[in-house]
Design a binder for these strands. Structure first.
Lengths: 193, 193
DNA sequence: CAGATGACAGATATTGAAATCTGTCATCTG
DNA sequence: CAGATGACAGATTTCAATATCTGTCATCTG
């Protein structure tokens, strides 16, 4: 299965595949090496430890969500619509990841649990996007926020139930949509001038 | 150790003691019976299963929190101060339970995880108290809330990070107090007329 | 000689036999 | 005879032996 040169990228792809196939607990470095047709020692030339390899995979996975949302931030909507869409987009993305392939989602939940540093940086990314939206709203005179950065963190925290994987089990229950809307409405009322 | 008659109450106390001593995983019905100086068969005359016994202990534990907060609801403060104090009281109570005896808190976190029905009823209790506060605010013309019940749930959800045991690890980190204040401020701005 | 290998030591996970626990119930006792 | 007991079957947990994995490194190969 040694197609082309062995790049970091190919190792990451193979690792994702093994995680998808075997789950977080049983995906081993030996498995990854076998899938790539190399010895496991070779994988260790690209990643110092298994933890580092898993961290890189986790980062890739989280970055896909950040990227999808960044389009909304740079869009041309009104700040309020933008904020609504961004929050709804984050919720919908998580809801789909959790609902479409629960096993894979559970796998990544384990990985994010192991890599709090990556998660913290991901959250910093997301709240950074939120800050940009809120800052724009303040500049346009539509939002009030003495400190957009801490307000964006408050908005992120207030909507926790709709993006933290710990609550994934509730995202498919009836009544979750109105609950989401109620929180977003409350938060938006709090932001308006 | 057979002091007095064997009441349901005494079994619950002994069970709490065993949970405190041995943790959720190792507290057995045999232990509880031994502590009470009776055979384990006797415990089963009071509780049909071990799960039922643990559920009763869990309920008692959660009810203590609800009771402590209910005093604030029936107090004489202004609605806004009342809501602030209630949310701060809930947060402080959880923070102390988690910080003062982390092992016992971990034990009860396992128990609440096992007894979602009890937890749901506990949450219904708490949001009921919140509804009373918000209703009072609406009646006095200080709050806006088309549907106080769903608004109270939104307030509860928005402050999740400060009362859900899943976040207990963050309650002792620096910066948690301002984060709490930021969310409460945002929520209160959203509630005001 | 840059990059890959695989044998190896120590750490971690798996497995299956033995020990303990849960829940029942026929029997006992005050 | 109301309430307690403890032997018992089946379920669950523990524990130690065994197998597998991680990470290193001296050696190999194109």
């Amino acid at each position: 299965m040694a197609t082309g040169t062995l790049t970091t990228e190919r190792i990451l792809e193979a690792t994702e595949e093994m995680l998808r196939r075997h789950g977080a607990a049983k995906a081993t470095v030996v498995d990854v090496a076998r899938a790539l047709g190399v010895s496991h020692g070779t994988v260790y030339r690209h990643f110092r430890t298994k933890a580092e390899l898993r961290e890189a995979v986790t980062k890739r996975w989280l970055d896909r969500t950040s990227q999808a949302l960044s389009g909304i931030v740079s869009g041309t909507e009104e700040p309020e619509a933008k904020l609504r869409h961004w929050l709804a987009g984050l919720f919908a993305a998580k809801q789909h990841k959790a609902g479409d392939d629960p096993e894979l989602f559970a796998t990544y939940t384990v990985l994010t649990g192991e890599n709090s540093g990556v998660v913290d940086r991901h959250i910093a990314d997301l709240t950074g996007q939120l800050t940009a939206i809120i800052q724009e709203g303040v500049t346009r005179g539509e939002f009030t926020a003495p400190d957009p950065a801490s307000t964006s963190r408050a908005v992120f925290d207030a909507t926790n139930r709709f993006h933290d994987p710990a609550y994934a089990g509730e995202w498919s229950k009836p009544g979750i949509e109105p609950a989401f809307t109620a929180v977003v409405d409350l938060v938006l009322r709090g932001l308006r001038r």
